[in-house]
């Protein structure tokens, strides 16, 4: 009895505190208080979509498009790598993109990685080897910030998983640059701050990264694909999806196998269960 009485008193007390000191003032404020301020930039944000027709790896049956991954790697190397590292990916991983051992060796050697002089022990550089990881374009975060107007270019290894719907986000971001509607901007008093760039698919529409893909044909694809901006954006988004989750396709394929087995096993378990219970649990009535 004491527990129930105590419970009722405690319950009424906590509810009274909540209602009188939190709920009612909040409701009053919501009804009569000033409307919450909206950043003018929110008026320009548009949710970005992926490339038309989606990616080859979308969906439970998706597969890598090796040619696209190779093109995306080329875009990363020729465009993104100037500012962005890819520190969790090693050159040896490129073998997964359909390159041979010799091609991986040669590709690794085209990169310069930090090394140590074997005779003097001093810091130096050397050509990359397959076991090396992609080098960072800056020696440290301070140097990266100093070279980029105080905004450190993030590592791209996991970018496709570090944003909601990351593959499509990367594509949308790279194709989302432009100018805000001037009339609308004037009306809400919006101006892109100096040193930032307008991008309608970036959460606050002011991004520190200058448009990386600015003209068609910025890279020349070896396979003859026309390097339009949407094409390059889709290719590099696909490549960064691979860097974020190299086991993506293996995972889905294993999944089908496991699911098939489990469905079979569960069906047997169900039959066995029904068999055991037959005769013990007749229907009601």
């Amino acid at each position: 009895m004491t527990i129930r009485l105590g419970g009722i008193i405690a319950g009424l007390a906590i509810t009274a505190v909540l209602v009188l000191w939190s709920l009612l003032p909040g409701a009053y404020n919501l009804a009569f208080g000033p409307a919450p301020e909206q950043q003018p930039s929110y008026a320009f944000y548009e949710h970005g979509e992926g490339p038309e027709g989606g990616f080859s790896f979308d969906g439970p049956l998706g597969k890598w498009d090796m040619a696209q991954l190779q093109r995306g790697y080329q875009v990363y190397k020729e465009v993104c790598a100037a500012c962005h590292s890819l520190k969790f990916v090693a050159f040896r991983n490129l073998k997964q993109l359909g390159y041979t051992d010799a091609e991986v060796d040669a590709e690794a050697a085209t990169w310069t990685v930090p090394g140590i002089d074997p005779n003097t022990g001093e810091a130096t550089t050397r050509p990359g080897e397959p076991t090396d990881y992609f080098p960072s374009p800056y020696p440290n975060a301070i140097a990266a910030a100093a070279a980029n107007n105080n905004a450190v270019p993030p590592d791209l290894s996991l970018m496709a998983k570090a944003r909601h719907d990351g593959s499509n986000y990367i594509y949308a971001l790279l194709t989302g640059y432009g100018e805000p509607d001037p009339e609308k901007a004037k009306k809400v008093g919006f101006e892109t701050p100096t040193g930032l760039y307008f991008n309608k698919h970036f959460p606050n529409v002011n991004i520190a990264m200058p448009p990386p893909l600015s003209i068609d044909g910025q890279v020349t694809y070896a396979d003859g694909t026309k390097a339009t901006i949407p094409q390059m954006a889709a290719d590099v988004a696909a490549f960064l999806t691979w860097t974020a989750e190299p086991s993506l396709i293996e995972r889905k394929q294993t999944g089908w196998f496991v699911l098939g087995f489990l469905l079979f096993a569960t069906a047997l378990a169900f039959l066995s269960y029904k068999q055991i219970w037959a005769g013990v649990k007749p229907r009601k009535g």
Binding site: F261, F264, A265, L268, A269, L271, S272, Q275, I276
Partner: peptide, 9 residues
């Protein structure tokens, strides 16, 4: 059925 279910498990 039981044998099959157990073996599968």
């Amino acid at each position: 059925i039981h044998i099959a279910a157990l073996s599968t498990a």
